[in-house]
Amino acid sequence: FHVTIHVGDITFHIHGVSEEEVKKLEELVRRGADWREIKKTIEEIEK
């Protein structure tokens, strides 16, 4: 999957994300995680 996440003024683009990881990111966004937490999760996914 290709994912784009907008957190305030920050936009993250992630490529090659599995469905499971998409759900993890959706959950973070849904519970209102700040951009640092989302960035950390994205960095883990990209490894």
Rank of each mutant, 00 (worst) to 15 (best):
22 V>H: 05
4 T>C: 05
29 V>E: 02
22 V>I: 09
40 K>H: 11
44 E>P: 01
5 I>L: 10
10 I>Y: 14
26 E>M: 15
12 F>D: 00
37 E>L: 08
21 E>H: 14
1 F>T: 06
41 T>Y: 15
37 E>Q: 09
32 G>Q: 06
17 V>G: 03
11 T>C: 04
1 F>Y: 10
27 E>K: 10
44 E>V: 06
21 E>Q: 14
6 H>M: 13
1 F>Q: 10
3 V>G: 02
44 E>G: 09
41 T>W: 15
43 E>R: 07
29 V>D: 01
37 E>Y: 04
19 E>Y: 15
28 L>P: 00
42 I>C: 03
45 I>Y: 08
1 F>I: 07
20 E>Y: 15
42 I>F: 04
37 E>A: 06
31 R>N: 09
32 G>F: 09
25 L>S: 00
36 R>P: 08
38 I>P: 00
37 E>H: 03
35 W>I: 13
35 W>M: 09
36 R>Q: 13
19 E>L: 13
1 F>L: 12
37 E>N: 03
40 K>M: 11
45 I>K: 02
46 E>A: 12
16 G>T: 09
39 K>Y: 15
21 E>F: 14
33 A>R: 02
28 L>I: 05
9 D>K: 13
2 H>K: 08
10 I>V: 13
42 I>Y: 02
6 H>T: 15
37 E>T: 14
23 K>V: 09
41 T>E: 07
20 E>T: 10
47 K>D: 07
35 W>D: 03
4 T>F: 10
2 H>M: 10
23 K>N: 09
13 H>G: 01
2 H>R: 09
5 I>D: 00
8 G>M: 05
34 D>Q: 06
33 A>F: 02
26 E>R: 14
8 G>I: 02
14 I>S: 01
30 R>V: 08
1 F>V: 08
46 E>I: 15
17 V>E: 02
15 H>S: 07
23 K>E: 09
23 K>P: 01
46 E>N: 12
40 K>L: 11
2 H>Y: 14
11 T>I: 08
25 L>A: 01
33 A>D: 02
21 E>M: 13
30 R>C: 04
15 H>W: 15
2 H>I: 14
25 L>W: 02
6 H>Q: 13
27 E>W: 13
46 E>D: 09
32 G>R: 07
40 K>T: 11
35 W>E: 06
32 G>C: 10
24 K>M: 14
27 E>F: 14
34 D>H: 13
40 K>Y: 11
2 H>D: 15
14 I>G: 00
37 E>V: 11
32 G>L: 06
14 I>A: 03
12 F>E: 00
4 T>H: 08
39 K>C: 07
40 K>V: 09
1 F>P: 04
19 E>W: 15
18 S>W: 03
41 T>D: 01
41 T>M: 14
16 G>R: 05
26 E>S: 12
33 A>G: 03
5 I>F: 05
14 I>E: 00
43 E>W: 10
13 H>L: 04
22 V>F: 13
11 T>M: 05
4 T>W: 12
29 V>A: 07
22 V>P: 00
18 S>V: 03
36 R>Y: 13
30 R>A: 13
18 S>A: 06
3 V>T: 04
45 I>S: 03
34 D>V: 02
45 I>A: 03
46 E>Q: 13
29 V>F: 15
47 K>R: 12
47 K>T: 10
1 F>K: 08
37 E>K: 06
22 V>L: 13
25 L>K: 00
25 L>N: 00
44 E>D: 11
3 V>P: 01
14 I>Q: 01
23 K>S: 09
10 I>A: 09
33 A>H: 02
13 H>S: 06
12 F>H: 01
7 V>E: 02
14 I>R: 01
39 K>S: 09
19 E>A: 13
40 K>P: 02
39 K>M: 14
36 R>L: 13
15 H>Q: 07
37 E>G: 01
18 S>D: 05
11 T>G: 01
26 E>Q: 14
45 I>G: 02
7 V>L: 12
2 H>L: 12
38 I>Y: 04
13 H>V: 11
41 T>F: 15
20 E>Q: 11
35 W>H: 04
5 I>Q: 00
4 T>M: 06
23 K>F: 15
3 V>I: 13
35 W>L: 11
27 E>S: 12
28 L>E: 01
27 E>P: 01
47 K>Y: 10
16 G>C: 09
9 D>P: 15
12 F>M: 03
13 H>E: 07
7 V>P: 01
9 D>V: 11
45 I>H: 03
19 E>S: 09
22 V>D: 01
2 H>P: 05
3 V>W: 08
44 E>S: 07
47 K>G: 10
18 S>Y: 04
2 H>Q: 08
16 G>S: 10
45 I>L: 10
28 L>H: 01
21 E>T: 14
20 E>D: 11
46 E>F: 15
18 S>I: 04
19 E>G: 11
38 I>L: 08
37 E>F: 03
33 A>M: 03
35 W>T: 04
24 K>N: 07
18 S>H: 05
28 L>S: 02
24 K>L: 14
17 V>P: 04
4 T>K: 04
14 I>N: 00
25 L>I: 12
9 D>A: 13
13 H>Q: 06
47 K>Q: 12
29 V>W: 15
36 R>F: 12
10 I>F: 15
20 E>P: 07
41 T>V: 14
42 I>P: 00
43 E>G: 05
20 E>V: 08
13 H>F: 11
9 D>F: 15
15 H>R: 11
24 K>R: 13
29 V>Y: 12
40 K>F: 11
33 A>E: 03
7 V>D: 03
47 K>P: 04
32 G>V: 02
32 G>Y: 06
11 T>S: 05
27 E>C: 06
10 I>S: 07
35 W>P: 05
25 L>Q: 00
28 L>A: 04
40 K>D: 10
7 V>I: 12
38 I>N: 00
21 E>V: 14
23 K>L: 11
40 K>C: 06
11 T>W: 09
43 E>V: 08
28 L>F: 06
18 S>L: 05
6 H>D: 04
23 K>Y: 15
4 T>G: 01
5 I>T: 00
9 D>Y: 15
42 I>W: 04
41 T>P: 00
2 H>E: 10
21 E>S: 12
20 E>A: 13
30 R>Y: 10
14 I>W: 05
12 F>R: 01
2 H>G: 06
23 K>I: 12
19 E>M: 12
7 V>Y: 15
13 H>N: 05
18 S>F: 05
24 K>P: 01
8 G>W: 04
26 E>F: 15
33 A>S: 06
44 E>K: 07
19 E>F: 14
44 E>T: 07
7 V>C: 09
11 T>F: 07
9 D>I: 10
43 E>L: 12
36 R>C: 08
15 H>N: 05
